[in-house]
C-alpha cells in the first residue's frame, strides 16, 4: 500500500499526487516513471515521476483523466492509498551540457518534461521552454518551468492565454529567427511529438521524445510496449521511454495504442454508470433521511 500524502487538482481533470514511496524516491532520476495499480481488480498503468523528495520519501505524479484507470485514480484524495506502485522504471534522461535546449511540453506532457528540463538547466544548458495547452487551464506547471528556464513561451490552441497557436509554431519561429538549437526535448500528445520530429528532421536538430505505449510489467518481460525504431522493435519500458524522434515510427505507436479501444470504452462507460448509480443512491438515501426526519 502506498499512501497519498497530498492530492490536488491543478487543472480540470489533472491532479497532482504526493505519494509515500521511500524506495522509489531515493532512486528516481529525471525521465523515469512508475507503474501503478489502484486496486485489486485494476490494470497497471505507467506514470512519469514529476519529482521526488528522497528525504521525505515521497514522489509526485501528475495524472490526466483519460479512461477508467486515470479517472479512478483522480477520484482518490489525500489520505487514500494506492495498492501497488513500482519503480523507478525506464532509462533516465541523458543529462549533459548540450548548449541550448528547447523543452516542449504539451498538456500533461509538461509535467513529464519538467524533471528533465530542471536537470538540463542544472547541467549548465540554456533552456528555452515552450509550453502549450488546448486552453489557458491546460497550460501546466508554468511557474515551475519558469524557475528552470532561461526563456519561456506559452501557446494555447484557442488563444485564451498567451500566444494563440501550437507549440510547433513557436519552434518554427525560433528556427526561422536563426536561434541556435542543440537539442529539442518534446513531450506531449503523439501528433505534437510527430510534428516536432518532422520539423527538426529537416533542420538536423537532435530531438528526443518520450513515448507512451501501453505497458504491463515495465521490466522488459512482456514486450507489449514495443515500439518500432528504424524498423527494429525496442521495448519502451527498458530501452526508453525516451527515443531519438527521427527514428521513431509514430504511425505504429498510434496503431498499437488503439488496440484496446473498445474494451477501454466499455470500462469507462461501466465506470461512469457505476458512479451515477452511486450518486443516485446517495441522493435517495439523503431523501429517505429527510422523509424520516419529517422534513
Amino acid at each position: 500500500m502506498f499512501k497519498i500524502i497530498h492530492a490536488q487538482f491543478i487543472a480540470p481533470g489533472i491532479k497532482r499526487f504526493i505519494l509515500e514511496a521511500p524506495r522509489i524516491a531515493r532512486k528516481q532520476r529525471p525521465g523515469q516513471f512508475v507503474i501503478l495499480r489502484v486496486n485489486q481488480t485494476g490494470e497497471r498503468i505507467p506514470l512519469t515521476i514529476e519529482r521526488s523528495d528522497p528525504e521525505k520519501g515521497t514522489v509526485n505524479l501528475v495524472v490526466q483523466s483519460m479512461g477508467k484507470t486515470t479517472h479512478l485514480l483522480n477520484s482518490l484524495e489525500t489520505g487514500d492509498s494506492i495498492l501497488d506502485v513500482v519503480g523507478p522504471l525506464g532509462k533516465p534522461s541523458e543529462i549533459a551540457k548540450f548548449g541550448t535546449v528547447v523543452v516542449m511540453g504539451g498538456g500533461v506532457g509538461t509535467a513529464m518534461a519538467y524533471p528533465t528540463a530542471a536537470a538540463l538547466k542544472r547541467a549548465g544548458n540554456r533552456v528555452i521552454t515552450i509550453l502549450g495547452g488546448r486552453n489557458k487551464d491546460l497550460v501546466l506547471l508554468e511557474r515551475e518551468m519558469r524557475e528552470v528556464s532561461d526563456t519561456v513561451f506559452v501557446t494555447t490552441d484557442d488563444g485564451s492565454y498567451a500566444d494563440k497557436g501550437l507549440v510547433t509554431d513557436k519552434l518554427r519561429q525560433l528556427i526561422e529567427n536563426g536561434t541556435r538549437i542543440d537539442l529539442v526535448l518534446a513531450v506531449g500528445p503523439i501528433p505534437m511529438m510527430r510534428a516536432v520530429a518532422e520539423m527538426t528532421r529537416k533542420e538536423r536538430i537532435r530531438t528526443i521524445v518520450s513515448l507512451n505505449p501501453i505497458m504491463i510489467d515495465g521490466t522488459g518481460m512482456c514486450g507489449g510496449c514495443r515500439v518500432l525504431i528504424e524498423g527494429k522493435s525496442e521495448f519502451a519500458c527498458v530501452d526508453g521511454p525516451e527515443f531519438d524522434a527521427h527514428r521513431v515510427d509514430f504511425a505504429v505507436l498510434v496503431q498499437r495504442n488503439s488496440m484496446y479501444r473498445d474494451a477501454e470504452k466499455r470500462s469507462m462507460d461501466d465506470y461512469k454508470r457505476e458512479l451515477e448509480a452511486k450518486k443516485a443512491a446517495v441522493k435517495t438515501e439523503a431523501e429517505t433521511a429527510c422523509v424520516l426526519e419529517g422534513k
Binding site: 481488480t41 485494476g42 490494470e43 497497471r44 477508467k68 484507470t69 504491463i216 488496440m259 484496446y260 473498445d262 474494451a263 477501454e264 466499455r266 470500462s267 461501466d270
Partner: peptide, 16 residues
C-alpha cells in the same frame, strides 16, 4: 496475472 479473462470485472483488457 491481470485476470483479463475476467474482463470487465477486472480492468485489464484483451482483444475479442
Amino acid at each position: 496475472l491481470m485476470h483479463a479473462y475476467e474482463f470487465p470485472k477486472y480492468d485489464e483488457p484483451m482483444v475479442d
